[in-house]
């Protein structure tokens, strides 16, 4: 899905952030926070498509790529669900409402939400990978009747790591078959334990009318994509969202190259069929 992200039309420097203000901050898990940002500059809050990401800048500390996790219907804000893993992302997680951040983007390709009517949808998320897929889920909820079967399969490390858990009942009520599995659970957990692919046997996959969207750790996506292929899905109907080191997001820094693809520009969302040969290699 080649979708143009934000490209400066006036020849200005795409490396220069725009000022945004935090309008809402919600703690999701012990390590994860969702920030809602609105433009604090002359340019209105930018539009995005599910799957795209921005570069978020914390004053003096640096910049990190973060997927957009909110609804495309909210034109007044951009939501980012951030896991505090490094100095910058930890600082972002701690930034309070009202504070300013620098934002570049949105950048990159989008999930193939638009497409033929009545397709079955299989959303497979691992860990923080649910964040960019939540934007897809919101779009599907808005026009649920345009899709056939719709599954949301969620894998997480533990119960405490589940993202957006309070929203699952609403997703289910709206006709998204939402299922959860954990890597590790205590005796009180009533749900499934196992990797996200362990949910597949009980999901009816109809090849040729299903599009699958996978986001999570690379190894998880590789296993899940392979399992879906075994269920008869074409590698071109399976989409994954890739992650690589990224400093510019506009194809200048060269770091996010994955084979011939710049993940920032040609990705992050790419059809599995295009990556299949690379995913079996180490250290690409």
């Amino acid at each position: 899905m080649a979708v143009e992200g934000f490209v400066p039309q006036d020849g200005s420097d795409p490396m220069v952030p725009e000022p945004y203000r935090i309008v809402e901050r919600r703690r999701e898990t012990s390590h994860t926070v969702t920030l809602a940002l609105s433009s604090a500059g002359e340019v209105p809050t930018r539009a995005f498509q599910p799957g795209q990401f921005s570069m978020l800048y914390a004053f003096g500390l640096g910049e990190v790529p973060i997927s957009i996790s909110g609804s495309t219907a909210r034109r007044d804000r951009l939501e980012y669900t951030i896991r505090g893993v490094g100095a910058v992302s930890k600082a972002l997680c701690e930034t309070p409402v009202g504070a300013m951040l620098g934002v570049r983007g949105p950048f990159g390709t989008a999930w193939p939400v638009a497409g033929p009517e009545n397709r079955d949808l299989l959303i497979v998320a691992g860990g923080i990978g649910l964040a960019p897929l939540r934007s897809v889920i919101y779009q599907v909820l808005e026009r649920r009747s345009h899709f056939g079967n719709a599954f949301v399969l969620i894998g997480a490390r533990t119960e405490a790591d589940l993202l957006f858990r309070d929203e699952y009942p609403r997703w289910r009520a709206a006709g998204l078959d939402t299922r959860v599995t954990l890597d590790a659970a205590s005796g009180s957990w009533k749900g499934s334990v196992g990797v996200v692919t362990s949910l597949f046997p009980n999901v009816e996959v109809r090849p040729n009318r299903t599009v699958a969207m996978l986001c999570g750790p690379e190894v998880m996506m590789r296993f899940a994509a392979q399992a879906l292929r075994d269920k008869g899905l074409s590698p071109h109907d399976i989409y994954v969202s890739m992650e690589r080191n990224m400093k510019c997001a506009v194809g200048f820094c060269g770091r996010c190259q994955y084979g011939a693809d710049f993940i920032c520009r040609d990705g992050p969302v790419l059809p599995f069929g295009r990556l299949e040969d690379r995913l079996v290699l180490q250290e690409v």
């Binding site: 003096g60 640096g62 400093k247 510019c248 200048f252 820094c253 060269g254 770091r255």
Partner: peptide, 14 residues
């Protein structure tokens, strides 16, 4: 070769 990194700095006054 064009690959690059970025370096963010802040002065002593912050």
């Amino acid at each position: 070769c064009f690959c690059s990194t970025v370096e963010d700095t802040v002065d002593l006054s912050g």
